[in-house]
């Protein structure tokens, strides 16, 4: 169906993302790529390598570490930084708590997810970053469907969805006043399936958490959670060993696992194609209310 001078959709998305990443480096003085250890930020970093080859990626990576990460995520992060010789900055939520800037939630559903915003904004300010790139996608959540590639943040780091700059053609307006910064989302137009197919096609390395493995888990509100010391369990919540994998990677406390025997990328893709629940459907942080994501984004969340 395609003529010789037309691109496949994955190649077109790749070209668009590389263009956006290069535009960030051209328009901002001190950008950073937010790195979570999840597949989306791994793909962003891969695209950044493509954008500047044979040069090095001309910015640092930054991980906002809640202290509640899976050990596998941290190990993957450190290996990646070493392998590609990039600077990996770590913003610590624990430190924000110690300084009294963030207050730990209590109870069974306690999560440090929301507190990341404090640490993120502090870290952006401390390092004087004028642009933070992230791996958010518009298909993830409805508040994200209206996000720009170049998203302007005021000097409090806040997002004003009703006052966004129109984004026309491929002309990105990154002009800002002192103290303001931008969030840029190079893979805005990718879907979950695009990411998986691209990872398969480009043979991109991923943390083991995405693949099927044995793990002690327990069920809460229809979600399987890792039976870790970081989550307070009720008496009725009895862990058992099951064969699971994670569709997204976030904190131990709020990332739901799915029972799965998918141990290769091909099997994961088959599973993603047949599944009838969105990947964020397993995220307790989004279920808090209809506008949970919108509220967190306005405050300056990823």
């Amino acid at each position: 169906m395609r003529s010789s001078y037309s691109l496949t959709h994955l190649k077109e998305l790749e070209a668009e993302s590389i263009y956006v990443i290069r535009e960030v480096v051209a328009q901002f003085e001190n950008p950073v790529l937010l790195f979570s250890g999840g597949k989306d930020s791994i793909v962003c970093f891969y695209l950044a390598r493509k954008a500047f080859y044979p040069g090095k990626v001309p910015f640092s990576l930054m991980h906002i570490d809640t202290g509640h990460n899976f050990p596998e995520t941290i190990a993957f992060r450190d290996d990646l930084a070493k392998k590609y010789d990039v600077k990996m900055l770590v913003g610590s939520v624990q430190e924000s708590i110690n300084q009294g800037k963030a207050i730990e939630e209590k109870g069974y559903n306690a999560s440090r997810n929301k507190m990341q915003t404090v640490t993120l904004l502090d870290s952006i300010e401390a390092h004087r970053f004028d642009c933070a790139m992230g791996g958010a996608r518009r298909d993830e959540e409805k508040a994200r469907a209206k996000e720009r590639f170049f998203s302007h943040r005021d000097d409090f780091g806040q997002w004003d969805p009703k006052n966004q700059r129109p984004e026309l053609w491929n002309l990105f307006n990154g002009r800002k006043h002192m103290g303001e910064h931008f969030r840029v989302f190079p893979i805005s137009n990718w879907t979950e399936m695009d990411i998986w197919q691209y990872i398969l096609h480009e043979e991109i390395e991923l943390p083991s958490l995405y693949f099927s493995h044995k793990r002690n888990v327990f069920e809460r509100d229809g979600t399987l959670l890792y039976a870790s010391d970081l989550i307070q369990r009720k008496e009725t919540e009895i862990p058992s060993e099951r064969i699971i994998r994670f569709r997204t990677i976030g904190d131990v406390t709020c990332t739901g696992a799915i029972e799965s025997s998918a141990s290769t990328l091909e099997e994961i893709i088959e599973e993603v194609a047949s599944t009838r629940v969105t990947e964020r459907g397993g995220r307790a942080d989004d279920k808090r209310s209809e506008a949970a994501m919108e509220d967190r984004k306005k405050e300056g969340y990823f």
């Binding site: 298909d139 409805k142 508040a143 994200r144 209206k146 879907t191």
Partner: peptide, 24 residues
């Protein structure tokens, strides 16, 4: 309600901004 993602839109029953949707 699928496409109207922002709270103000749902409350007022209007669409404020360009929303991007994906299917294959």
């Amino acid at each position: 309600l699928l496409t109207d993602g922002l709270r103000a839109e749902r409350e007022q029953g209007i669409t404020i901004d360009v929303a991007y949707r994906y299917f294959a």
